[in-house]
Amino acid sequence: MSRIQTTFAALKQQNKKALIPYITAGDPHPKYTVMLMHTLVENGADIIELGVPFSDPMADGPVIQRASERALAHHVGLRSVLDMVSEFRQKDNLTPVVLMGYANPIEAMGAERFADRAKAAGVDGVLTVDYPPEECGGFVDLLRARDIDPIFLLSPTTVTARIETIIKNASGFVYYVSLKGVTGAQNLDLIEVAERVAAIRTKTDLPVGVGFGVRDAATAKAIAEIADAVVVGSRMVQTVEQSTEENVAANLAKLVAELRYAIDVVN
């Protein structure tokens, strides 16, 4: 069983939902990333989603774009992100790490080389925003052969027939994007989210995570009532942006702890 599967199984036994915070690797500075990952775990993260900076993050709103730019200013790329995961694994061999990013850095490294290196570094899942299943069959096979879970997005506009195609390629969990638009947009319709998640559940037993637009403890709580995992991205990154290098860890710790508490109160 992969670390992601183990994590969801354990949470289910405790009747808890997963909290998946996202940070962009290298933001605000590469020297803090591993420390911040440990901070997230210490304060209640079940899985870490680690953003791989890209020069052209087409699916991201301004908050995560700026995080990418801050990281790129320090030349953080896929190779250094994998090094960060390796370093994180020296102290934490339990918490799953999912890389989220775009196709081109993977293509530049070479898909097979990336899969090997990701495995060696201790990566558990890979979400590639602009690799729809139709274009990445070979890549999915490379990941699966190494017990790395390919994570795919489902959106409010994904039609039923496509949900099936995507789920056939996915493992670990599926990630429902709770609104139309880029990351960090803010018009979440909880009733629609609930309906869509219910529809996804009729197609798969994979855990369903929900993200894009989870901005505070109240929304996180509401999403936790619907989904198996709550993904919080732009709000985390915004906190990094608004912090100083001295208090960034403390501020993230506080935010994650609040989210954890809100999610756990559900049950």
Partner: peptide
């Protein structure tokens, strides 16, 4: 590489940044 929805020749650095 891959950018703007298609695969093609792309000016990029070693990390795949455009």
């Amino acid at each position: 590489g891959v950018l703007h929805g298609n695969r093609t020749y792309l000016m990029q650095d070693e990390d795949g940044q455009i």
